[in-house]
Design a protein around this nucleic acid. Sequence first.
DNA 1: TCTGGGGTCCTAGGACCC
DNA 2: TCTGGGGTCCTAGGACCC
Length: 433
Amino acid sequence: MSEATEQIFALVDVNNMYVSCERSFNPKLRKVPVCVLSNNDGCAVSRSNEVKALGVKMGTPWFQMKDLARQHGIIGLSSNYALYGDMSQRIMTILAEYSPNLEIYSIDEAFISCRGLGGLWTSTTAMGQHIRANILRCTTMPVCVGAGQTKTLAKLANFMAKKAPLFEGVCDLTTMSSARMEWFFTRIPVDEIWGVGRRISTKLNAMGIDTVQRLKDASPSAIRSHFGVVMERTCYELQGVSCLAMEEVPPARKEIVSSRSFGELTRSVDELSEAVTMYVARASEKLRRQHSVCSAIHVFVQTNPFRTQDPQYSGGKTIPFTDPTDDTRVLTGAAIQGLAGIYREGFQYKKAGVMLLGLIPNSIKQASLFDTEATRQSSAAIMSTLDKVNQRYGRDALRLGSAGIAQRWSMKSTNRSPRYTTRWEELPTVTAN
DNA sequence: TCTGGGGTCCTAGGACCC
DNA sequence: TCTGGGGTCCTAGGACCC
């Protein structure tokens, strides 16, 4: 493979992101066991190394670890997402200086494409160490860097960088000897691989595939027959065949959810309404920020499933819009009306939320043929004509474009419960042959 | 007593049409 | 009218991620 075409991915990941943020603003928290808790101080969502060493798993309810916390002086902090988001931005800004090809994967992770950076650094490891030192100096946040020929390998390398001190926070698989790599891969459990969760690892284990090396050595087609195309890709990626590309422009969301559990149970429809109103405000703000409109809103409520002694209820309703909208008032009205339909007396509610469904980019809606019922029908007529022509003269004999954009729209309600999917295709401009 | 929130993608199988 | 096969679309639900 020529150097020009060989791709190297680097994954930069903040260590214990939320805990590190808290520590960066309160140095007294360094060296003591800390965890950051979810909404209502429910579960541990970020743990310091000391807490991890005590065996506390991700998502452990705080009340279950109270004894342990007392024994070892674990500090539990309420989460502060504004702070974490801000810190994330600062880190991503620094990372953007290293490569024009940056994919922000989550609040605490980013992929960097090292294509074309070969001349700038003596090695990928050197670049990784520079990134580490730079971010630590500017933000006090510790990060680890992993590099590999594929995203899955870069993730794995990052895991190794975090676990094995000898890497000093940076692990580059692209320059590691295959013997050494195999030494590591036979010692890493298969469930550490990106895309292998609890269910799949159980099934893999039963098949005798318990380590990274075993999955790497497996036949991708056999893996596909048992687990589907996603696992097949993972298998290829472990072998160094890149199946997952960089996504530098984050795709617009296809749905937006806003929901919360309540600190205290409630029976009151007024309280539920108040909560739902807030959720709609939050969700529709996100909707407008990504310049989309939505074609349906779903509102749901539920009781506390953990209180098995209580009567349980979970209800939801989807309200469609003839004219897709981003208007908070319209959305709120629909949600409150939906809520009235699903609210039942005699239950203690623990959670409520809304989902915005069938999201369409504004540009598409404006350029589209279905702003009104009439144009929507004519759109359908055009499409059916096209289908007939194409059927007679062969597939793709004719395509339609309207200002470069036409789309088939599927927002269909069936006799069963309607489901709103976002599916629009851009067709190229008219070509006849 | 106390148990998070926000997403995506894939597949099996039914409905429907020709 | 009956029968069958193939293609496509759709939904529900599973699995995963951070």
